[in-house]
Design a binder for these strands. Structure first.
Length: 182
DNA sequence: GACCGGATCCGT
DNA sequence: CGGATCCGGTCT
């Protein structure tokens, strides 16, 4: 499985985010075992975005967002959940796409229908932070779907934030049963 | 060194 | 709508 190239991620975050819909996330669990999920919901977080963790400069937590695109940004939230992002834009320009929901083949449609739930399902923790997802030997990569179905993309406001709540930077696949909310 | 609120989720 | 549950960021 060939991972998406760094040049895919090192573009404007608002372009990358909707293009991640329909792509497949692969998490290697051992030599031959892996889990896979299809991205059905995303949100964009950019430089100069008050809701972005990088809005007030570099810290130990958000450091990876200031590096090259294609790396994972995983953080711990609400004392019990992790959230998975992919870093966008070139080095020194912070930006990321939050993965909000996955459809998992042969599983209940709700099993990964939320940012916390998908990390729980894939067993993603801070150990997976700052993984280079463009390296084919990585535990975590993103690939094109073998048979990309046709789907309609809906754009809406982001979920669960208080700052910049009006920015329409959430995208999801219409009629997917695995989207986190309606 | 303390305090606070958060890119969530579930049960009521 | 409240509780779980913890840690990073900010202020003292």
């Amino acid at each position: 499985m060939k991972p998406l190239k760094r040049s895919f991620f090192e573009r404007p975050t608002l372009k990358v985010a909707p293009e991640l819909l329909g792509k497949t996330i692969l998490l290697r669990q051992s030599r031959q075992k892996h889990k896979a999920g299809i991205i059905v919901e995303v949100e964009a977080y950019t430089k100069d975005d008050p809701a972005c963790h990088a809005a007030r400069g570099k810290t130990t937590r958000n450091e990876v967002m200031f590096g090259p695109g294609g790396f994972s940004y995983v953080y711990f939230i609400y004392g019990m959940y992790h959230c998975l992002n992919f870093v966008t834009e070139k080095k020194e320009i912070p930006g990321a796409v939050l993965i909000r929901a996955l459809e998992i083949p042969n599983e209940d449609p709700g099993i990964a229908s939320g940012p916390g739930k998908l990390c729980k399902y894939l067993k993603i923790t801070k150990e997976h932070n700052a993984t280079d997802c463009c390296n084919e030997d990585s535990m975590l990569i993103v690939t094109d779907n073998k048979s990309p179905g046709h789907f309609i993309i809906i754009q809406s406001a982001r979920v669960g934030i208080s700052k910049a709540a009006e920015y329409p930077w959430r995208w999801y696949i219409k009629d997917s049963c695995s989207v986190s909310k309606k």
